[in-house]
């Protein structure tokens, strides 16, 4: 364990009744970066993220988050946005924000205000009236309004319109503080979002097949991360 590491994972294994989602995965991730966790559906991305949050108990292996095993204490250090839509439809945006923010000590009202403005969301709108892209923007606010040192976004770009995707990418770039935050974003389809990432991890059937700095990989392979992704998972 190094002081500059956000995450150290060793030999992580998780079996479900019909499939082995993680097969002895090792991963070290240093602080201050935005990391893309890339892999097709079923490669183990969500299982990995949920294990880090502590929502899934792995069968084997160890996880250290800033040097600590997953616990109630590390939960407070992580802002996790799951892929599933967990918002209450009957609430307004304002009610959603008040409800969620009440759980966290690190919520910053100033950030919340900036983000709502930037994401063009109005407080009195009902969640049930929002498009999928709008709901994705709202979910991002719930993570970025906190100052949590580790932010995990599971498939934030999945199935949303290009305009919302652009807003989300720009919102992350504006709000992410590399001095004291680390972010992992999982996606099965990179599209035109690869410029967002410092580094990428290719997750292939429960193990990491490639990890590296995005610029170094472009230089080494003479390819975009998107092309490399398509080649590896063809």
């Amino acid at each position: 364990m190094n002081l500059t590491d956000a995450l150290v994972i060793k030999n992580l294994t998780k079996k479900y009744p019909k499939v082995e989602a993680l097969k002895g995965l090792d991963l070290t991730l240093s602080k201050g970066q935005i990391c893309g966790l890339l892999g097709p559906n079923g490669s183990g991305k969500s299982t990995l993220l949920k294990s880090v949050v502590g929502l899934i108990k792995p069968d084997n292996g160890s996880i250290e988050i800033f040097g600590k095993s997953p616990s109630r204490h590390t939960k407070a250090m992580i802002a996790f946005v799951p892929e599933i839509d967990s918002l209450y439809r009957w609430m307004t945006i304002d009610q959603t924000i008040k409800f969620i923010s009440s759980f966290y000590d690190d919520w910053e009202v100033e950030r919340e205000r900036e983000l709502l403005d930037f994401m063009r969301l109005e407080r009195d709108k009902k969640v049930s009236s929002l498009s999928k892209g709008m709901r994705a923007r709202l979910k991002l606010i719930l993570a970025l309004a906190r100052t949590a040192p580790l932010i995990l976004l599971d498939e934030p770009f999945s199935g949303i319109d290009p305009a919302s995707r652009d807003r989300i990418v720009e919102g992350i770039i504006r709000q992410f503080k590399s001095e004291d935050q680390t972010m992992i974003i999982s996606t099965h389809s990179l599209g035109d979002t690869e410029q967002l990432f410092d580094s990428v991890i290719f997750l292939d059937e429960g193990i990491i097949s490639l990890q590296g700095n995005a610029e170094d990989l472009r230089l080494q392979h003479g390819k975009s991360i998107n092309d490399l992704f398509k080649e590896v998972f063809a």
Binding site: I34, S178, D198
Partner: peptide, 17 residues
């Protein structure tokens, strides 16, 4: 650096580099 990163929609560490 932060403004250019937001304008180009590029990771801030890339602009810093």
């Amino acid at each position: 650096q932060r403004d250019l990163a937001a304008l180009l929609k590029v990771n801030a560490n890339t602009v810093q580099r």
